[in-house]
C-alpha cells in the first residue's frame, strides 16, 4: 500500500458515496446512467469473485464488500425505489457493444486461461469503458448537476491515482501488470475531456454545460 493507491481507493469510495447521497437527497436519479451502473455492478462481481478463494487483507475484503454492496444499492435506488425519475430516454447506450468485445478480449489476452483469471481480466477491460454510457448521457442532455460532476471527477481521479500507484510500484517493488496498466490508461484518457470541463467550469462555480 502506498499513498497513491490509498488516495485512489478513497477517491473511488468517495465517488460511490457521492452518488448515493445525490440520489438519496434529491430523491432522484436524473442525469445518472443506469447502464453505467449495471456495468459497474458486473465489474465488481466478476472481479471480486476471489473474495471466496483468496484472503489478502481485512482492508481488501471490506472494500470489495463495500463496492459490491453499494453498486447493488445504487441499482436498487435507480431501478426500483426512484424508478420514476430514471432518465431512460436519454440513457440509450447499447451496453452489449461494450460487454461482448471486453469478454472476447479477456478470452484472448489474459495472464492465464482459467475461469477466475478470465473474469478478472474481463472486469478490468469492462471497467475501462464502463463510464461511456454515463458520458454519453451527459453529452445527450448537454449538462450535469454539480454533484454528478463531483461524482464523475472522483471516479475518474481514482484510476488516474492508480496509474501513479503503478509507476510507484514499478520502481519500488518491480511490480507491474500490463493488462491493468493498459486498461487503466484508457480509462483515464476517457475522462480527460470531462476533467477539462470540470476544472474550467465546475470548480469556478459554474454548472457543467457542454458547448452547443
Amino acid at each position: 500500500m502506498n499513498i497513491f493507491r490509498l488516495a485512489g481507493d478513497l477517491s473511488h469510495l468517495l465517488a460511490i458515496i457521492l452518488l448515493l447521497i445525490k440520489i438519496w437527497k434529491t430523491r432522484s436519479c436524473a442525469g445518472i446512467s443506469g447502464k453505467s451502473q449495471i456495468l459497474f455492478a458486473v465489474v465488481y462481481v466478476s472481479r471480486y469473485l476471489d473474495l471466496v478463494t483468496t484472503f489478502i487483507s481485512l482492508y481488501n475484503t471490506l472494500m470489495k464488500l463495500v463496492f459490491i454492496t453499494s453498486s447493488f444499492a445504487t441499482l436498487y435506488l435507480m431501478y426500483v425505489k426512484f424508478k420514476a425519475t430514471y432518465d431512460h430516454n436519454h440513457d440509450s447506450f447499447r451496453i452489449e457493444f461494450l460487454l461482448l468485445p471486453c469478454f472476447v478480449l479477456a478470452l484472448l489476452i489474459n495472464a492465464s486461461f482459467t475461469p477466475l483469471e478470465v473474469l478478472w481480466t474481463f472486469s478490468i477491460y469492462l471497467e475501462a469503458v464502463a463510464i461511456l454510457p454515463q458520458l454519453f448521457l451527459v453529452s445527450k442532455t448537454g449538462e450535469a448537476e454539480s454533484i454528478t460532476s463531483h461524482y464523475l471527477f472522483a471516479l475518474g481521479s481514482y484510476r488516474a491515482l492508480y496509474l501513479l500507484n503503478w509507476i510507484y510500484r514499478y520502481y519500488a517493488e518491480g511490480h507491474y501488470d500490463l493488462i491493468a496498466i493498459f486498461a487503466g490508461a484508457i480509462q483515464t484518457i476517457l475522462y480527460c475531456d470531462f476533467f477539462y470541463l470540470y476544472i474550467t467550469k465546475v470548480l469556478k462555480g459554474k454548472k457543467l454545460q457542454l458547448p452547443a
Binding site: 476471489d50 481488501n60 472494500m63 500507484n165 507491474y176 493488462i179
Partner: peptide, 10 residues
C-alpha cells in the same frame, strides 16, 4: 522484474 497480477488491488 516479473509480470504479476494486481490481485491485491481493488
Amino acid at each position: 522484474l516479473k509480470h504479476q497480477n494486481s490481485h491485491d488491488e481493488l
